[in-house]
Design a protein around this nucleic acid. Structure first.
Lengths: 203, 203
DNA sequence: AGATAAAACGAGTAAAGGCTCATATTTTTT
DNA sequence: AAAAAATATGAGCCTTTACTCGTTTTATCT
């Protein structure tokens, strides 16, 4: 079988090494944020930690914020997937429990990173709009609440925000304090969230 | 009654205008943080907004962080006072309710400022130690919990942190969303906090 | 009024850090 | 093997910004 010579110069598929470079840059950025906070979070430091020249870094990201945004997307992807799965559960109690669990697990995996990225997301929200994850989760949670038998005097929107706020608040605090027992924390968060909406579910 | 001539040149009392300058600087810093976030938070901008030269600013503050620390102290003073008063209440239910109220009111008065100062406090904590307000509040809350009949299986320390986390999480979220009805928010936070510890107190 | 201390001033310095671009290396294609 | 495309390099430009210091203005004291 003869190979057809392409009519147009074939769009060069991305080489494997460039993908590796991008990954290295993102992970270096994550590690610097975790280790040094915003202080040491400079493009030169990121490039150095990634074992890549500063020029290469700017070949893949137009500016520093783009790195942060990509990192947020990367760290957020699993959370969004888990929440979406959870929201599809038949039993709304299970759905809520799993959504809460997704949030807790996400935020306790790399607590400092999650926290710092939240701060950055807040800053970036002002300049470029963009469906943040908070809104995405909120939307799904409201859907679930509508199907539930929870007292929605305050409105599903408000209750959903409150449930997210409780989860985030407790998990942030736990992360700051260095708690690592996800199970224990999850139990407390579930108790707080379910009792808040008037359901005393001890399991 | 004859006035004793002072043996040493009397320590020159601070003039009124210097006190005004310091106040102007702090308020300018607060306003810039509120309006522009960390982006515009530069010493030159602060001095300009305060209507003061950059030289004067550095006459009263050795460096930029000192301004932030002074601002944190200023914003935090009332909160600490309120919490201390609240903790002294006889009835522990009232004590807890008032402590929660103090937190909510504080954080909803200038929400963005409170949030940004929290972030800064976290950053500064790492370098210079110093009794942050979170610890002070926590201490008092633990005391109150000890006198209460609340189920402390998880330990007073953990329960106290959870209560604070719930309060802060919900109020932060409310502030971010632009909620301004303190009363409505306070009701929800009280419900969340009291129900979390197994007390269903509808008032 | 004159002397002294306190407060204010702001041009300028130095360092940090985001980012560019001309060049070099590696990989792919023909 | 040669050409072309993709990828990598890093010295250095340029802006921003924390902070200094020599000078001037204002207030206080005798």
């Amino acid at each position: 079988m003869l190979r057809q010579p392409p009519l147009q110069p074939r769009k060069q598929a991305t080489q494997a090494r460039s993908a590796r470079t991008v990954e290295n840059i993102l992970e270096a950025a994550a590690r610097i944020l975790e280790g040094l906070g915003f202080e040491g979070y400079t493009t030169n430091a990121i490039a150095a930690k990634a074992g890549v020249s500063i020029g290469s870094l700017y070949q893949y990201f137009p500016n520093k914020d783009a790195i942060t945004i990509a990192l947020i997307k990367r760290e957020t992807a699993r959370l969004l997937a888990d929440v979406t799965m959870a929201a599809a559960e038949r039993d709304w109690r299970v759905a809520i429990a799993k959504m809460v669990e997704a949030g807790v697990v996400h935020q306790l995996r790399r607590p400092r990173l999650a926290w710092l990225l939240d701060v950055e997301e807040g800053r970036l929200r002002e300049q470029s709009s963009g469906m943040q994850i908070v809104n995405a989760m909120h939307l799904k949670l409201v859907e679930v609440l509508m199907k539930s038998q929870i007292d929605l005097r305050e409105g599903a929107v408000v209750v959903a925000f409150d449930m997210m706020a409780i989860t985030r608040g407790m998990t942030d605090m736990a992360g700051t304090r260095g708690e690592t027992d996800t199970g224990a924390l999850l139990n407390r968060v579930l108790r707080a969230v379910f009792r808040y909406v008037g359901i005393d579910k001890e399991d």
